Computed example of a mutant assay.
Amino acid sequence: MSECRRPRVYVDERERGSGVPEALAELGAAVIYTMAGVGDYIVSDRVAIERKTMHDLAESLFDGRLFDQARRLTEYYEIPVLLIEGDLTRLEEYTSRGQQIRLALAALALDYGIRILWSLNQRETARIIYNLACREQYGSRRSVVVHRKPRLDKLWMQQLYVVQSLPGVGPKLAERLLEKFGSIEAICRASIVELERVLGYERAQRVYRVLHTPYRSPGKPDT
């Protein structure tokens, strides 16, 4: 492989603050934040990486997001990668349905062609992503292409897409929220108790916080 000077890694904005982009920058990567739409880390025109902690993995499987994310990765990238951060031997500490998760991972590999990689922590995750970027950009001389969000021709598709951007909300829950409240505006006006009836306590707390916390720019100093 050719000498790796400074590979570019496009990072989805949702990964800001996870610790991985900072570790990538320390390794020498040029970190470029973007609203990727598909994938968390893009290292070439054919390789995109979806990063999940063990908790994220369990939650996204049971709320319906995991297979939707896998489908979109395979639609837009030739080599889709799922990078799971954590110790597989401790899976049962995160969920009582560990066997279902293992079967789901087998399905992702066999039915979707997802490459599954493992890391123990954020720094190891960054090292893997850095090496993939070097391999693609300097070894295979691939360009970096961020495939944006899919074309959404119908209004209902756009509404589902917006609601799915809320934390912990996959396609099924997005549809349930819209059917329950009738519109995105009504979801935003819903009380935390009303959201809890659809989302459960913890997810409702997170969604309510995103919808109602005043925005503060990352570069704005505390007052």
Score class of each variant (00 low, 15 high):
Phe181Val: 12
Gly39Glu: 08
Gly17Phe: 03
Ser191Asn: 10
Gln99Trp: 02
Leu152Met: 13
Gly168Phe: 09
Glu185Thr: 05
Thr125His: 03
Met1Leu: 05
Gln158Ile: 10
Thr89Tyr: 05
Gln99Tyr: 03
Ala174Arg: 00
Tyr201Arg: 15
Ile42Phe: 06
Arg102Lys: 14
His212Trp: 15
Glu3Gly: 06
Met35Phe: 10
Glu179His: 03
Tyr41Lys: 12
Leu120Phe: 07
Glu75Met: 13
Gly170Lys: 00
Pro171Ile: 13
Gln69Cys: 09
Val81His: 00
Phe62Met: 05
Asn131Phe: 01
Asp56Lys: 12
Tyr77Val: 05
Ser18Phe: 01
Arg6Ala: 04
Phe62Ser: 04
Gly39Lys: 13
Glu175Arg: 11
Leu195Gly: 10
Arg189Ser: 09
Val47Gly: 01
Lys52Met: 05
Ala204Lys: 08
Tyr10Ala: 13
Lys52Glu: 03
Lys220Phe: 03
Glu175Trp: 05
Gly113Ser: 08
Ala126Ser: 05
Tyr76Glu: 09
Tyr208Ser: 14
Glu3Leu: 10
Tyr130Glu: 06
Ser44His: 11
Ile184Val: 15
Gln205Tyr: 08
Leu177Lys: 01
Leu24Thr: 02
Gln122Asn: 10
Val193Gly: 15
Gln122Asp: 05
Ala106Cys: 06
Arg115Asn: 11
Ala190Thr: 08
Gly98Phe: 01
Ala36Trp: 03
Leu110Ala: 10
Lys149Val: 06
